[in-house]
Design a protein around this nucleic acid. Structure first.
Lengths: 205, 205
DNA sequence: GGAGAATCTTGACAACCGTCCAAGATCGGG
DNA sequence: CCCGATCTTGGACGGTTGTCAAGATTCTCC
């Protein structure tokens, strides 16, 4: 049983963490709208009801804030996608679910994905982003690889490419679809659905 | 035969264009080093021997400068890659040349490619970049598709994916390799070589 | 209920940005 | 050689940024 001091400490930490989440969720809207480079702590504060000092009270700096935001979102994203893909019982069903899942994920919150790619690009320049980006990339790669292995189980065959290559190709399709979708293309989502459905079997030849 | 006035005008325009190129090439070094968001016209001026006013004399604004720079580089890049791939006479040779070419391109100037991906990400937020990015993307997609068709000719088969999907997948591999290469991975180049060599035949099943 | 810690607001600060401009340097044709 | 066009410089301006600290407010616990 924890001491009462420990309980107090815990609840204080929880409260701090809750508030962080609250601020992050509010900030995420502005961040997703304007992107990393164009968003200042002041802009975020103006668009919410918080003061700019408060953000600095809960987050060490801009980098701390944005990585917290994106990490939070991507976790939810992976979890959601896993659900969409879990039910397939034949290879074709799984391939279709893969395409549908990616298209649905993209359609659901394109601006969030845009922010993710923004953050990943920034990490190529800003050392401070690298670790968090690598971790998110890793979780996405795992997500894709679970999909590939599920397909392998259903077909009784073995994939002929590495996990990172599989992730890279799906990611390329997804990123291009996002780009076209945001540019107003009507067919971007359907193309993503088709091309990612077709990609899955290609990984086994 | 042009009038003497026209000759003078022409030479003046040429001179202006030459100077633009000269400034752009100098700016490109700093831009590739720091990325779009972190680079100001003043920083560029400091790192070169030009004044910041001069940059503004030859380029309307920062966007004008950076798009000019990247477009200039990517043109050279496409031309170079085409040469590397032109000589293959069997499907396997072509696939190998494809992988070697991409790896060589990446190894040659990773910072330039980093800048390109930075620019492309910014274009998702900044309307002003869209047209130039779309044009560069188009030329890269054409480059890849010429490769795919050459492979089709050598094998006597037909590709089973769209030009944009083919480009997206190669681009995904390339981007991931860049990311890992810059993070210090020893195997990134070899992995790119292998995975892109393997990708080519996958597009025909 | 009041002392002390926490949460939050507000304003100030220096640094930096893109832009613009006036004045000096340089060049080229007459 | 000189004059006007072109090129280049460097500084001034208004605006924005991240950071910080001092004070106001709220909460917690005795």
């Amino acid at each position: 049983m924890p001491s009462s001091a420990a309980v107090r400490l815990q609840s204080r930490v929880d409260k701090f963490e809750d508030r962080r989440r609250e601020l992050a969720d509010a900030a995420l809207l502005t961040l997703a709208d304007l992107g990393y480079a164009r968003t200042s702590l002041r802009t975020i504060a103006d668009k919410t009801s918080f003061s700019h000092g408060l953000l600095h009270y809960y987050f060490a700096d801009k980098i701390d804030l944005i990585t917290y935001c994106v990490r939070r979102y991507k976790d939810a994203c992976v979890q959601r996608y896993e659900g969409l893909v879990a039910e397939a019982s034949t290879p074709d069903e799984l391939a279709a679910a893969c395409g549908n899942g990616l298209a649905a994920t993209l359609a659901d919150a394109p601006l969030m994905h845009r922010l993710w790619y923004d953050l990943r690009s920034q990490s190529l320049f800003e050392e401070a982003f690298r670790d968090d980006v690598a971790e998110i990339d890793g979780s996405l790669q795992d997500m894709i690889w679970r999909l590939v292995r599920a397909y392998a189980d259903l077909t009784g065959t073995q994939p002929t490419c590495s996990p990172s290559a599989a992730y890279a190709m799906f990611d390329g399709l997804f990123q291009q679809a996002l780009q076209r979708h945001l540019a107003g293309s009507e067919t971007a989502l359907d193309d993503l659905r088709d091309s990612s459905r077709d990609l899955l079997p290609r990984l086994f030849v």
